[in-house]
Nucleic acid binder design. Structure first.
Lengths: 204, 204
DNA sequence: GTCTATACGAAGATAGAC
DNA sequence: GTCTATCTTCGTATAGAC
C-alpha cells in the first residue's frame, strides 16, 4: 500500500506537481473523517505516501496552510456543485439531488466521512482564525445560491433567507446524526420534512 | 481568576473530590470549544489548575475516560433540561426556551462554545468508538422526548418523528453556523422557520 | 489521595543530502 | 524539486515522593 506503482507514459511525464493536489485531497479526507484538530500532517502523509519535507515545500505555512488549502479547495468544489444544482433545478430537485449525493458519500465511507467545511465550523481554532472566516464565506455562498433559487420560485425574500438557513443547518446537522447512527435515516427524515416546507408554497 | 478563594468552614472541610468534578467541567468546556480531538489533558489541566497525576487517579483510563465522562455528564444535564422543557411546555414554547438557552451560551462565550455532544458526533474516533455510541444514545433520547411532545400535541407519529429529527439536526447545525458567523442570526432564522412548521398543524 | 518529576512517544518543523 | 534525518515541542502516561 505504501508504494503506488506509477504508470509512467513513454514520453517521460513531467511529473506534474500533483503531489500538492494529492496532499490537499488527503487533507480533505482527513478533515471529513477526523475533523480539523484531528488532521495531523502525519496522518495526511500516511494517507498519501508523500515524504515529510514535501509538505513544507508546497505549503511553507505548514499544517495550518495545508488545512486552509484543503478547506478552500473543498469549498470550491462544493460551491460549484451547488451553483449547478440551484441553477438548473427546482428547489425540491436541488434538495433531493444534494441529499442523494450525501447519502452516497455517507454509505461509501461507511458513515465515516462528513463535510470538511463544517468540520472547521464546529471547532474554535485560536491559532488560525482565518479558517473560520473561509468556512463562513463558503456557507454564505451556499446560503445565497439557495435563497436565490427559492426567491425565483416565488418565495418571499425574507422567508427564503430563513428557509435557506434552515436547510443548510439541517442538512449539516443531519449528516452528523447519520454518521453516529450509521444510518441515512436522519438525513432522509430531515430532507423529507424540508421538502414538505418547500412545497408549502404559501408565505405567512 | 486562577485561584478561586476557597471559603472553608471552620470545621475543616473534607476537601470533597470535586477535583474530579472540576476536571469533567473543564473537559466539557474544552469539548464545546475545541472539539474532541482538540481536547488534550494538558488543556484541561491548564484550565482547571489540577496537577498532572490527578487525572490518572480519578480516570485510570486516561484521556479517553475523561472525555467519556465529560460526554456522559454533559448529556445527563442536557437530557434533564430537555425532559423538563418537553414535559411542561408546548412544542413552540420548548423550542423557544431551548433556543434562548443556546443564544445565551453563544453570546456568553463570544461564540466560542458549541454543543459538547455534537462535538464528538462530527469526528470519527477509531480509538474510542464507544464515544460515538454514547453520543448517539443521548441524541436518541432528545429525539424521543421531542417526538413524544409533538405527538401529544396531535401531530401524527411518523411525522412527529421526522419533525423531531429535523429540529435536532437544524438546531445543532445552526449553532455551528452561528459560531462561525459570530451572530445568533442563523439560530434565530432556523428556529423561526421551525416554529412555522410547528404551528402548521395539519399533517400531510 | 495530592502533587512533582520524568519516561516515552507522537507531531510540527527544519536542514540539508540527493 | 524530491526525499531523509533530525531537532524541538507537546502530549500521554507512570513512578513515586509527600
Amino acid at each position: 500500500m505504501a508504494s503506488t506503482r506509477r504508470a509512467r507514459s513513454d514520453t517521460a511525464r513531467p511529473r506534474l506537481p500533483d503531489a500538492r493536489r494529492r496532499m490537499i485531497e488527503g487533507a480533505i479526507d482527513s478533515l471529513r473523517v477526523h475533523g480539523a484538530s484531528g488532521t495531523s500532517v502525519d496522518r495526511v502523509l500516511a494517507a498519501t505516501g508523500a515524504p515529510r519535507g514535501s509538505v513544507y515545500h508546497h505549503f511553507p505555512g505548514g499544517r495550518t496552510q495545508l488545512i486552509a488549502a484543503a478547506v478552500t479547495t473543498a469549498g470550491a468544489v462544493m460551491t460549484e456543485l451547488i451553483d449547478t444544482l440551484t441553477r438548473d433545478h427546482t428547489p425540491v430537485q436541488a434538495l433531493d439531488q444534494f441529499a442523494a449525493m450525501w447519502r452516497q458519500t455517507l454509505r461509501d465511507s461507511d458513515f465515516r466521512s462528513g463535510c470538511p467545511i463544517f468540520a472547521v465550523a464546529v471547532e474554535t481554532n485560536d491559532e488560525a482564525p482565518e479558517l473560520a472566516h473561509t468556512a463562513a464565506e463558503i456557507f454564505a455562498r451556499w446560503h445565497h445560491a439557495l435563497a436565490d433559487l427559492l426567491v425565483r420560485h416565488d418565495i418571499p425574500g425574507d422567508r427564503a433567507a430563513r428557509l435557506a438557513t434552515l436547510t443548510v443547518a439541517a442538512i449539516e446537522g443531519a449528516i452528523a446524526l447519520s454518521r453516529i447512527q450509521h444510518s441515512t435515516q436522519p438525513l432522509d427524515d430531515a430532507v423529507d420534512e424540508l421538502r414538505a416546507f418547500y412545497t408549502t408554497t404559501e408565505s405567512r
